[in-house]
Design a protein around this nucleic acid. Sequence first.
DNA 1: TATGTATCTAAGCAATTGGTTAGATATGAA
DNA 2: TTCATATCTAACCAATTGCTTAGATACATA
Lengths: 192, 192
Amino acid sequence: MPRSKSYDENTVLERAMNVFWSNGYEATSVRLLEKQMGINQFSIYSSFSSKKKLFIKSISKYREHVRQNVYQTLLQEGAGMKELEQYLLKAVQKKREPGTSRGCLVVNTAAEIGGSDDEIAAEVNGYFNFIREMLRKVLKTAVEKGEISPDTDIEKQSAFFLGVMQGLSVASKTMDPVQLNDFISVAVKQIK
Amino acid sequence: MPRSKSYDENTVLERAMNVFWSNGYEATSVRLLEKQMGINQFSIYSSFSSKKKLFIKSISKYREHVRQNVYQTLLQEGAGMKELEQYLLKAVQKKREPGTSRGCLVVNTAAEIGGSDDEIAAEVNGYFNFIREMLRKVLKTAVEKGEISPDTDIEKQSAFFLGVMQGLSVASKTMDPVQLNDFISVAVKQIK
DNA sequence: TATGTATCTAAGCAATTGGTTAGATATGAA
DNA sequence: TTCATATCTAACCAATTGCTTAGATACATA
């Protein structure tokens, strides 16, 4: 009997994610969100309850986004060192492209919010656990394939590459492509 | 003839720096600043012109702060690999201490503001150039001392360690001490 | 000791913040 | 075709934002 929604929650959530990604949490106003999402404040609140809840949902949407568009190759069965290296170099190349790099939404959030909000911190930690798990598997596969030494300490190396990826997010905003490439090439070389 | 200031600009600037460091730029209100700085809004604006200018001055104050309290050893003549390693391990140890790590003010700023404000971006770049220059000198000294190979590519390695330090700032908020230690130990080992 | 001047207090400014609500509107089952 | 119900519009809310200002205050000089 009731009227049906005129928008798709998934679609407007993806738009919200992009607004937060571009501007950060605090600098994103609900007015800006309604413009970019294309729906009224009422609809934002009826679908997502609060700005903070919408932000948290944007982070989990981001996780889905990178899973499908950034890490898809790395997440495939059999992905090893070659794929990891390719991903890192592609991230460097992207820096040459138009506009300022937005970095990683979750790194930006960790830097901006830190641990001062428990719910947001939980979502951030969940994301990084997902990345670390991905790295562990990739490195294990790399050992199995003989791409890296069987003596490789998987735990140490996955912590290392997670740290490198966090650094890369910041560095992509502050380093030129040459320095970025130097950074990554040293990080990759050490495991060979 | 005129009345004299009842506060020291340097002192209140250091307090402002700490407020921005704890909360980030956007989340820091001028009301909070006046409370923490211990002076009235009028005095803030008469001494620092605007919130943004105060923030930029806080970043350069931060540079002075780390120069004297964080990197003092690394900046000494003759500092090499041992000092670099000591600094990194100390940064890891600090994570065990009370409260959530605030990370590096400038990394936080790079993540929050990115390149969307030119004046702030310039201050951020100046800071990272200072760090990179410090790293270059330390690595050169390390070569001279025979701590690392004379074939070491100073440019690549200084870009690498700058990236690692940027990662460390984020990681100190999201990793536990064990993972942090893994991250740093791999970063240091690769140069030996 | 008197006084000119910058400093300080505290109130105020318009604009924006996150969030709510009353009433108009559209929809899909009966 | 009716009608109950959820969706939508747009105005509204108090609180807070960065910043300004008029007038009271205190101090270095004369």
